[in-house]
Write a protein that binds this DNA or RNA. Structure first.
Lengths: 342, 342
DNA sequence: CTGTTAGCGCGTTCAG
DNA sequence: CTGAACGCGCTAACAG
């Protein structure tokens, strides 16, 4: 049923190696035979057996993308869901496939990163928002397999020499805050998320903006949610006193901002008249709500594509120096929720 | 760097085949040696080379999921985005990987379904909402590779003998409509989608419900959008006369329902007091909106899991009879947008 | 029960 | 430029 190079060789009256060479564009083949072989292969809809090929070349023509284990959360999904739509353009150009996995096998507890690499199922890995444990990291280094960290910058002795493609979350946090301050706000409540580095970075940006404008940092204005719509809603409700005394709210995910918006409406606080609101992420979803949300845009497509291209670059040659850090600048998208455009 | 069974054999002082057999749970091995080998393999973090294994066994321990080419659309993405979160539980139990692809390579125009199969990169395919062209279908049949159609039922001479796992969209269309009629509505405007079979099925359900209650079908009440929020919004605006004379609206995607909701609000029509609204899909997103949307729930998790299990069943044995059709019943989720619970 | 041997389909020397 | 022969790491007869 499945054709092999041997079959094609038989059809063409040449040896198997000639077929292999022709189809791999070896310079050792005359133009004439190459074309003849190519024609036959096309007619027969021949494709190499990936296993045999991989066994010989030690390549898989597949890369893996590792999602964080909490990928099932709706908000996270909303943010990353479109990622492979973007990877696609890079991958399909090079005829490379994509395996999707999570850091840990929920069932066996096995480390999927190690597994995919040791089994040689992938030529490289994109690690999305993954705090890989140090042992796995060390393993990755040892094997020399190309990998790229996606989403936020990690800067520790551990992550030295690692390729990273990320948005500047400090800058993003700064942009959102600075915008509000320029509009005259001094008391800006923040809804952030604990336990995730990208949010710590956004908080740093928040403080930097305050400092720049000489506004003292007030810890009581910093609230913590869990990324979800519900938590945005709940936090506003729980801190209604605090919030009714503030003039602006900066939520560190759009989804939380929308939850907050809902709560504010119930509290009869108008946005932006009574309180200004800024989100973070610029997901398409926010355009479904009123007022349209001013938010910090992250170029997700660009990040995805750059990460993928960098990975393929690394996979293409052993000699490339590792540890490139590609930082993408976020931008502020001014819409209606701050009253900047009345 | 990478260990092979030969290396393990050397370490254990046995032959390579003994290692292979031990690690594959062959009954031809004494408990004692097996355990010894297993221990060594574990210590060395040994894993089989998937390529070599695949070449021998002609398996890939990987399945492919094929998404429709319009996957990039936000609404579609929203609906399917969580799919592999659910597939995961089935796949990880069996230590099987997942390749994600689209029907066609946007770049080369190549048929990804054929490619993955001929290259032997996958042991089976889940085809999501894919109208595969007849030639590819014929190809799949010829090769005998297991595959399952996901999402909606296709019934044509072409699809004879094909495994399908799908929600009963006719029933769903019926449920939404019947609910509205029971609440006293007679003039029910429908926002559907053209060119996609699942929506034709929902429209059939709509008509069936009308018939059951002796209400004549009025073609002018049937409007067509493109699944998106924007189209839901636009259609309501464009047909404001029609809609202000109707008492209920049945949108065939939740996302369109939300767009419609937005438009209705602008038209100062209250939901559900002035007009009742029913959606379709029951995506988590709708809980972000008020009033909470009454909608037709599709058990996406169940569909995903069943499709996957069926696929693995087929992959497990050649003798299983093909062509099982697993129909999942949708259900109506009554929330606030119809006034059923005032 | 265990070891030896022969492929699986391809890339790649090494001869011509 | 082309063909014959070998090996990638594993499974699966075939012997013992």
């Amino acid at each position: 049923m499945a054709l092999t190079t041997k079959d094609i060789a038989l059809l063409a009256g040449v040896s198997q190696s000639t077929v292999s060479r022709s189809l791999n564009n070896s310079p050792l083949i005359s133009q004439k035979t190459r074309e003849r072989i190519l024609k036959i292969a096309r007619e027969q809809e021949f494709e190499f057996n990936a296993n045999a090929r991989g066994l010989s070349t030690n390549r898989a023509d597949t890369i893996g993308i590792i999602y964080p284990d909490d990928y099932l959360e709706f908000g996270v999904n909303l943010y990353f869901g479109s990622l492979h739509t973007h990877l696609r353009q890079t991958l399909e150009k090079r005829d490379i496939d994509l395996i999707v996995a999570f850091s840990k096998n929920r069932w066996t507890g096995a480390d999927n990163v190690k597994r995919l690499v040791v089994r040689r199922k992938v030529d490289g890995l994109i690690l999305v928002r993954s705090l890989v444990d140090p042992e796995t990291l060390e393993f990755l280094r040892r094997t020399g397999i190309p990998f790229v960290f996606l989403h936020f910058h990690q800067d520790s002795p551990n992550t030295e020499g690692i390729d990273q493609v990320y948005a500047d979350h400090v800058k993003g946090g700064f942009l959102g805050t600075d915008h509000l301050i320029r509009l005259g706000h001094q008391k800006i409540v923040c809804i952030s998320v604990d336990e995730a580095e990208e949010f710590a970075q956004r908080r740093r940006g928040y403080r930097t903006a305050l400092e720049k404008h000489g506004i003292p940092y007030d810890e009581t204005l910093m609230l913590y949610g869990d990324r979800s719509f519900q938590s945005g809603y709940r936090i506003v409700k729980q801190h209604c006193d605090l919030i009714s005394k503030a003039t602006a709210l900066f939520a560190h995910t759009d989804v939380m901002a929308l939850g907050a918006l809902d709560a504010l409406r119930e509290m009869n606080l108008r946005v932006p008249e009574d309180i200004a609101l800024v989100g973070y992420d610029d997901i398409e979803l926010t355009t479904f709500f009123h007022p349209h949300l001013t938010t910090v845009h992250q170029p997700r497509e660009e990040i995805a594509v750059l990460a993928c291209e960098r990975l393929l670059e690394l996979a293409g040659s052993k000699r490339i120096k590792r540890g490139k850090e590609i930082k993408i600048q976020p931008s502020l998208v001014v819409r209606e929720s701050c009253g900047a455009r009345a």
